[in-house]
């Protein structure tokens, strides 16, 4: 149970695919022109992600290492086709607005990334909830971008007018540049508030130098520590 909660927390907050991992940028920038589109894309991706993670985890000992990528693509593509036909049949509104971005879920980096880094190495139940967590994280990311773009760009949220008549919508926010502005601002806020995430970790190294290799210029580091450990 703890493992399941940890996976969902990890997907939504700690390794949020949109604001921390910066994965799946193509749908993030392209379809978030309104909050409704964001939530539609997020949930569609989540459904595919949960199912593909489950099946890939189930088959992780069967799939040979050399052809794992084609195998994953086949699995993901089958689910995407299923979801696409279901959407076309039952939710034509969502199908029309998302358009080409539904088939493109096949090559969404979040799905292949989770398959490669988690589902192929872990048992079924955690993999499934990893998919749920990541999918929810993606949905939260896309919806919040969508809300801000819709609010600034057309004065509405989920199609309901919230700004008064005095408000002059800044159309650029529902066009392509607005996606970059909003994504950058939300990521900056997330970083500034030091939300718990994979990139905002405190330094926990026990090394004397602090272990912050990213901002360190020493080039003799490896040799020196090797020599020290040999002493």
């Amino acid at each position: 149970m703890n493992k399941i909660g940890e996976r969902i927390y990890n997907g939504i907050i700690k390794e949020n695919p949109t604001f921390v991992l910066m994965l799946g940028m193509c749908p993030t920038l392209a379809v978030t022109s309104s909050a409704f589109n964001g939530i539609g894309m997020g949930l569609t991706t989540m459904v595919v992600l949960v199912m593909s993670n489950t099946i890939i985890s189930l088959l992780r000992k069967v799939i040979p290492d050399g052809v794992r990528m084609p195998a994953y693509i086949v699995i993901v593509a089958s689910f995407v086709t299923m979801v696409q036909l279901l959407l076309q049949g039952y939710l034509p509104a969502v199908y029309d607005t998302l358009g080409i971005y539904i088939p493109l879920i096949v090559v969404n980096c979040i799905i292949l990334g989770r398959a490669e880094s988690y589902a192929s190495k872990n048992p079924i139940i955690p993999s499934m909830f990893d998919g749920v967590g990541m999918g929810l994280g993606f949905t939260v990311g896309l919806t919040s971008i969508g809300i801000f773009r819709e609010l600034i760009g057309s004065g509405c949220i989920f199609g309901i007018k919230v700004m008064g008549d005095w408000y002059e919508p800044a159309t650029i926010f529902v066009l392509a540049p607005g996606a970059f502005f909003v994504l950058a601002m939300l990521t900056a806020v997330q970083n500034k508030l030091k939300a718990p995430s994979a990139t905002n970790v405190e330094n926990e190294s026990k090394l004397a130098c602090g272990g912050n290799c990213i901002s360190c210029n020493r080039i003799d580091c490896g040799e020196k520590s090797k020599a020290e450990s040999e002493d």
């Binding site: 002059e168 800044a170 159309t171 650029i172 926010f173 066009l175 540049p177």
Partner: peptide, 10 residues
């Protein structure tokens, strides 16, 4: 250009 795209009417 930001203003021109955002508030093209004005």
């Amino acid at each position: 250009c930001f203003l021109l795209i955002s508030f093209s009417g004005i």
